[in-house]
Design a protein around this nucleic acid. Structure first.
Lengths: 84, 84
DNA sequence: GCATTGTTTCTATATTTATGGAAATATAGA
DNA sequence: TCTATATTTCCATAAATATAGAAACAATGC
């Protein structure tokens, strides 16, 4: 992996809220959790959470799946291997 | 590793100049390189480099060893394992 | 169509981090 | 001690990132 991509990946996890989100979703498994569920578990305002979810998704660490009014976010397990 | 320490570790690598410094020192092996040597190889002003070396050292990713007027920095290989 | 619920976008603000010149500090050799 | 070289600290400034309320945007059920 080139330096620029590695920096994007590392930076996306180098933030307390985002690392907690990622760890929560790793625990949650492949089905993931709805955004609102994450927000209430971690006690993060929805707009702040949305900002962080976007960062993580953009870095390729999360996958988003819409189901009705809910959007389920789940961890993209494979990508961490690429970094190392 | 707890979240806070992990964030410090990740943040210290989540920056282009610092990731390049770390990678250069991994390549350089256990003897490391003197600060000025790193500065000229990566073309970074000395004060800026010093700032980044401090960050990396503080995060535990680098070790510093004084030898005369030179300070040799080398990569602390073991710590990356702790993260995972 | 209207009300309800979940999520995102917009926006302003606050906070953190990076940059590099100049000055200070440290070591060594003549 | 004087000089040269290596590195760091100080400082001001610039740039990037995080925060959260309010408004906008879906999707659903009645």
């Amino acid at each position: 992996m080139n330096t620029k991509n590695a920096v994007i990946l590392l930076a996306s996890l180098a933030q307390e809220a985002r690392l907690e989100i990622f760890r929560l979703l790793v625990q949650a498994g492949p089905n993931g959790l709805a955004a609102g569920d994450i927000a209430s578990r971690l006690n993060i305002p929805s707009s702040t959470l949305s900002f962080h979810l976007k960062e993580l998704t953009h870095a390729g660490l999360l996958k988003a799946a819409q189901a009705g009014r809910f959007i389920y976010y789940s961890a993209a397990f494979n990508i961490m291997g690429d970094l190392l």
